[in-house]
Write a protein that binds this DNA or RNA. Structure first.
Lengths: 225, 225
DNA sequence: CCTACCGATCGGTAGG
DNA sequence: CCTACCGATCGGTAGG
């Protein structure tokens, strides 16, 4: 039951914001009384924090795959990191929406979360980018930390707001999503390496198309690569 | 008085969201009674729409400079468009915050706004990028419409959420802002043209530093180029 | 632009 | 996990 409350709270808070989500609306979605929700979570604030912690806990599932990977400065490594980043949000857009809302609603409170969850990851990526820059693989005039942050914000927020503007991209929602993620990956590649997309990048982008099925909870028709 | 209400409403709704901003809090900020706010604007919904329309009206100030410019496909033109885009949000971050919130809160209602205000602009930029691509100035594998959308979303949302994460970039807020905008411009350039930053791009980036003073309403110390 | 007031809903509690 | 209830605040109105 606790999990069910958490799931509905995540969905509603991602859609309308934590402030605009009443405890009553969560209770209705679960099918219980409001007082019962407040039995599992002592206050609405506690529920909000639980939702955010659950989200960041999932981030810890994906982090090790990035941090423990060998610290080479090859293109493959950077492609993999960007792929994981995009997949994390694309596979569960509510995460993206919730995070953007928290960044807007509680900037000072998010600092400690970013320090715990993003700072270490950012440090490793910055180091790898610096190496790549010295060895000439990565563009010389890049600002490694700023680049990593921008790519994170771009993945996060473009997926969070996609429901509003995908129609500008294509009348078919699935096609729009593929074009959205493909161009995102291309921009990341070009920003890092400058030149045209390498063969292996095309392979990576291809896997987005397979991954797109998990982009939304709605059932999506199969997409051909 | 109407303008004063509109100004405080914009500020509060950008900071906390329209749903979380009470008419009472706006009245308090202006220094009048709640009923007096509802004399100038018949309902909270009308006030919210007035705030959004005011914002989009300002967008119409910047649009002509982009649409009426000669439709060449040179690098200068693209640099100029991206500069206007970034300046529009950087000079008034409340705009960015408000727009991101609206995109999240009312995706279906935003469609008509995007159709009126973004679609025509997007069409022109797409055409120019297509020309540039054919003439070899712009990267061949670019998706023009998706690229223009991504750059808009990136400028918009990175400025909207910057208060949360600028400390990850630099302990000095002004320095962080300059690095943020400079890397944003570099990414746009590299995504478009692939190679290193051209001399004229450096000039453009330089003007961001002057522009940064308007980044925030807080007083900022002078930044050296 | 104000005072005074409306019903509805808010987060939360008592008590079982 | 429920019923029943709390004071506070919500958007909005009547009437001046």
């Amino acid at each position: 039951m606790r999990d069910q409350i958490l799931r509905e709270a995540t969905r509603l808070m991602a859609a309308h914001g934590a402030n605009a989500t009443s405890v009553q609306s969560i209770a209705d979605a679960v099918g219980i009384r409001k007082a019962s929700v407040l039995y599992h979570f002592p206050s609405k604030e506690a529920l909000r924090k639980a939702v955010l912690n659950e989200l960041l806990y999932r981030w810890n599932d994906v982090l090790p795959r990035l941090l423990l990977a060998p610290s080479t400065s090859g293109q493959d490594r950077f492609e993999a990191i960007i792929f994981e980043l995009m997949s994390f949000f694309a596979s569960e857009p509510d995460r993206a929406r919730l995070l953007v809302r928290e960044l807007l609603d509680r900037p000072e409170a998010m600092e400690q979360y970013l320090k715990s969850y993003i700072q270490p990851w950012l440090h490793v990526v910055t180091k790898a980018l610096d190496e790549g820059r010295r060895s000439g693989v990565v563009q010389r005039d890049i600002d490694p930390t700023a680049f990593a942050l921008q790519m994170t914000v771009l993945s996060l927020s473009s997926i969070a707001t996609a429901d509003s503007w995908w129609f500008l991209l294509d009348s078919d929602k699935d096609t729009a999503k593929v074009r959205h993620l493909t161009e995102l990956a291309r921009m990341a590649h070009a920003s890092l390496f400058g030149a045209r997309v390498a063969p292996n990048a095309t392979r990576k982008i291809g896997s987005f198309e397979a991954n797109t099925e998990a982009y939304d909870t709605q059932s999506l028709r199969s997409i051909k690569g």
